[in-house]
Design a binder for these strands. Sequence first.
DNA 1: AAGATTTTGTTAATTATTTAACAGTGTTAA
DNA 2: TTAACACTGTTAAATAATTAACAAAATCTT
Lengths: 207, 207
Amino acid sequence: MKHLPHKTIARLSQYRRALLLCHAKGKTHIFSHEIAKILHITAVQVRRDIMLIGYTGTLRKGYNIKDLIDLIGRIIDSEEGINVSVIGVGNLGRAIVNYFSGRRTKLSIVACFDVDSNKIGKKTSGIEIFHIDDLQRIIEEKNIKIGIMTVPSEQAIDIAELLVKAGIKGILNYTPKPVNVPKDVFLEEYDMITSLEKVAFFVKTHD
Amino acid sequence: MKHLPHKTIARLSQYRRALLLCHAKGKTHIFSHEIAKILHITAVQVRRDIMLIGYTGTLRKGYNIKDLIDLIGRIIDSEEGINVSVIGVGNLGRAIVNYFSGRRTKLSIVACFDVDSNKIGKKTSGIEIFHIDDLQRIIEEKNIKIGIMTVPSEQAIDIAELLVKAGIKGILNYTPKPVNVPKDVFLEEYDMITSLEKVAFFVKTHD
DNA sequence: AAGATTTTGTTAATTATTTAACAGTGTTAA
DNA sequence: TTAACACTGTTAAATAATTAACAAAATCTT
């Protein structure tokens, strides 16, 4: 197992969630075409991804759900878990924190940051909100590895720089402003405006 | 100009936003490498995308910003504009509505939907909230073409079906639950959990 | 005015990703 | 027990997207 394609990683995460649901229902085995159906992709793709991670199912019974869940976990999770922080406690920041709170996973959101003095010291979905001035200190103290940026776009560049300086290893940028990070920091950017414009384009052309 | 790649469409949207900023600053021309720098991509890619839409800059002066903005508009916008609705007025739904409110664009969010009776009839960022039971009627009345799903994932399937039945042409699904739509409806799905797990994976492996 | 420089436009090469094809093999059924 | 079936695993082909390479031309420099 040398180099897993980015897309495969993303799908593994989705396979696992689907599998966890099946597992909860008491199902023990699953076929590639069943997984495919749930995620609306092709069975070949599922088999290929599973091949890439070196798992092998049993003929006629399909894949053992529990085993596959565990294997995906060993691949995409860190054994010790990874601490995450959210920078910018607006609607989007709150949505994300709320989303993740209460999940029993290897990823935990352990701190939020904002500049609004009304928010500092309070909690959102159980997670404490700190002032951005304390970002460096808290990130070190709490051993935070990932930062999710949900700040206004004008602040994106500065915050990204701050995160890098604080030693963060991965950034998820939900700001529509592209940021620049050294290549040892993994950066994932998602731009809602662009996504909507893309949908609009296809709606327009498919008319 | 036959078939623009999906990725190119997404980048055109980003080029335009960057160009609008430059335009606002009074800049009239821009080089491919300048655009590239802003978006952290390569100049070749910028030139190639611009070639694909059939625009041609002037040597040594680069691209005329105003012209390029207009051309991108003619490609990705609908002349009459497109009406959009948000289904699910939680934190994420509010974040999106708030994001788009006040943009002078061809895309307007014109209605929100929820089931919480405390929210019905109120407004969020100036947009009225209707009950989901009125979805079909409002979508027809207001000529809404796109639905942004920000409901809890258990409801995703039903809501998607409802939207399709109401005649929606494009769906942006922010639920972690994949949904199924007929192929004349354009579907874009984005899953925050998967994105975060992807970042975590690369943080883990790049360590 | 000649030559160097800068930048575009475009074709070709490369890389990444998906899809197709099919051999191999338990399992069921006759 | 033999044939049909329903799966997986894997290699090969096709498609999509990015990157490289370079000719052409406007501008600058000397």
